[in-house]
Computed example of a mutant assay.
Amino acid sequence: MTYGMSGMETAGRQQMADATDTAGTADATDTAAGMADAVEEAEKVSADLRDALSAAGVKLPSLGLDAVSWAGTAPFVLVELGRCNVDTARKLAAALRLGTGVHRPDAEA
């Protein structure tokens, strides 16, 4: 039995080879550098948010970077806030209200 490349495989390999020319390499380098900058910025913001929440007595256990958002070609990194229990959500709401000065109309005096 002979194993050879199909026309589609050959075309795909050619496209990959074409993509690694000088311009393609520069674009890939720019994209990688942009992604590294975006990840670094997102890590800093995530740490800052974690510190601010901690100062308010709130801990979001799943706070971190969303790895799925890195899958695109443009540097687009999301900070994942994650899920939390009811008590943590209550503390977060109270901290936000305190920081903004906005109070619930039904809050006890």
Results as ranks from 00 to 15, higher is better:
residue 85 N to E: 06
residue 62 S to W: 08
residue 55 A to W: 00
residue 57 G to S: 05
residue 61 P to T: 14
residue 96 L to K: 05
residue 35 M to E: 05
residue 38 A to S: 03
residue 58 V to D: 02
residue 65 L to A: 00
residue 9 E to K: 13
residue 92 L to Q: 01
residue 100 T to S: 14
residue 20 T to R: 15
residue 44 K to H: 12
residue 55 A to V: 02
residue 13 R to H: 09
residue 14 Q to V: 12
residue 27 D to V: 06
residue 54 S to I: 07
residue 6 S to L: 10
residue 11 A to C: 04
residue 66 D to H: 09
residue 96 L to C: 11
residue 30 D to E: 08
residue 96 L to V: 10
residue 37 D to Q: 12
residue 2 T to C: 00
residue 40 E to F: 08
residue 31 T to F: 04
residue 69 S to F: 00
residue 61 P to Q: 06
residue 70 W to Y: 07
residue 25 T to F: 01
residue 54 S to C: 00
residue 35 M to R: 12
residue 63 L to A: 01
residue 32 A to H: 03
residue 28 A to V: 02
residue 71 A to V: 05
residue 10 T to F: 12
residue 62 S to L: 12
residue 90 R to L: 04
residue 48 D to P: 13
residue 70 W to P: 00
residue 36 A to Q: 09
residue 77 V to L: 03
residue 86 V to L: 11
residue 14 Q to Y: 12
residue 71 A to T: 07
residue 89 A to C: 11
residue 72 G to I: 00
residue 33 A to M: 07
residue 8 M to V: 12
residue 24 G to E: 03
residue 71 A to R: 08
residue 41 E to V: 13
residue 87 D to A: 12
residue 84 C to W: 04
residue 24 G to P: 05
residue 87 D to H: 05
residue 95 A to R: 12
residue 74 A to R: 12
residue 17 A to G: 06
residue 45 V to Y: 07
residue 34 G to E: 02
residue 46 S to G: 14
residue 27 D to H: 04
